[in-house]
């Protein structure tokens, strides 16, 4: 199997779907000739033609609105919002239109579009190239929200998203584009080469939406994470010497509630980790679900590790970013709480 970075795996997924389904088309800012600012659509215009992969005006609301119209017609548009920080002008289209079209028309019209967007921090991108807005989509019913953490999952989940008949927000952890990142920013960067999850099969395959993966089996505490924080949590588990079970949620809507409850009932403890700021973050929903469904199995309060409740600050990248030290500390607190 070819070894691919996350960027190449995403590019491969789009290439496979363009070749397979004439109703798939791609547009977004700079995605055409240039191939996207992160190169995810590199050479797709050259290979599949200008009407299959093309540049759009700088208008996130317009991009998503026209994609909804196309998808209502019967196409499967895959649009790119250049940074998730810039998705908010499209929020009304996502919340009021894409997510409810099926419901309000009783299924007469549907919106099977995919909105891809790089998100998350760790690249010194400041306030407007670093945010993690997943919770504001998870709060909206009728739209799915998917976040891969490896090249293998990125390709399989993106194909599943494109084939899904509901709208999907597909958030790509940009710090993982070129290699896994465990939060140790002061160490040399690593590429995906040699990583088992960089073995990406050729051709078509799908990773089902709503199915978590167990990134590490363990017995003492369950860690719930997605995106970059899967790798950060794995490092924290390794360094703390705690036998934690790490669950990579892969999609937060739909959520694999069975995997979560099975693990927490086994370990009796839970730490929730995300980059997004803490207050009203998706971690709050996870903590509530665990409390509702596993209360009598819990031996300590659910811990949350998250970004601080401030805008994403440029100079304080590594003070803000919840790195392995903060995750380790939460794991220890969780275990120290007497049963």
């Amino acid at each position: 199997m070819p070894e691919l970075s996350m960027i190449k795996a995403l590019n491969d997924a789009l290439d496979v779907m363009l070749a397979r389904d004439p109703d798939v088309l791609i547009f977004g800012e700079d995605v055409g000739y240039f191939g996207g600012v992160f190169r995810v659509t590199d050479k797709l215009q050259e290979k599949h033609g200008a009407t299959r992969c093309f540049d759009s005006p700088i208008s996130e609301g317009g991009i998503v609105a026209t994609a909804i119209g196309m998808s209502a017609y019967g196409l499967r548009p895959v649009v790119e919002i250049q940074f998730a920080d810039y998705i908010l002008p499209a929020y009304d289209q996502i919340v009021s239109e894409a997510s409810r079209l099926r419901y309000r028309s009783n299924g007469e019209f549907i919106a099977p579009l995919t909105v891809r967007s790089p998100y998350g921090g760790g690249i010194y991108g400041g306030q407007t190239h670093s945010q993690s807005p997943e919770a504001i989509f998870a709060h909206v019913t009728g739209v799915k929200t998917v976040i891969p953490s490896t090249p293998y999952d990125a390709k399989g989940l993106l194909i599943a998203a494109i084939e899904c008949n509901d709208p999907v927000i597909f958030l790509e952890p940009k710090r993982l584009y070129n290699g896994p990142f465990d939060g140790h920013h002061d160490r040399p960067t690593t590429s995906w080469a040699g990583h088992p999850a960089a073995d990406v099969p050729e051709g078509h395959y799908a990773v089902p939406l709503g199915k978590a993966s167990v990134a590490r089996e363990g017995s003492e505490v369950t860690v719930l994470a997605y995106g970059t924080m899967v790798h950060v949590s794995a490092a924290a588990i390794e360094e703390s010497g705690i036998d934690a079970e790490l669950i990579d949620l892969r999609s937060i809507v739909p959520l694999d509630i069975d995997a979560i409850t099975a693990s927490v009932r086994k370990t009796g403890r839970c730490v929730v980790v995300h980059e997004a700021s803490r207050y009203a973050g998706f971690g709050g929903e996870l903590a509530a679900l665990v409390q509702e469904r596993c209360f009598y199995h819990l031996e300590s309060p659910v811990e949350r590790v998250a970004g601080w409740d401030t805008p994403y600050p440029h100079a304080f990248e590594w003070d803000y970013f919840p790195g392995p030290a903060r995750v380790s500390a939460a794991l220890k607190r969780c275990l120290e709480t007497p049963a």
């Binding site: 991108g125 400041g126 306030q127 407007t128 190239h129 805008p311 600050p313 440029h314 100079a315 304080f316």
Partner: peptide, 16 residues
């Protein structure tokens, strides 16, 4: 440079 003398206290991307 987002340094200690940055008038915007390191909160903003360079040149903003």
């Amino acid at each position: 440079f987002s340094n200690e003398k940055d008038p915007l206290k390191g909160r903003q991307l360079p040149i903003l």
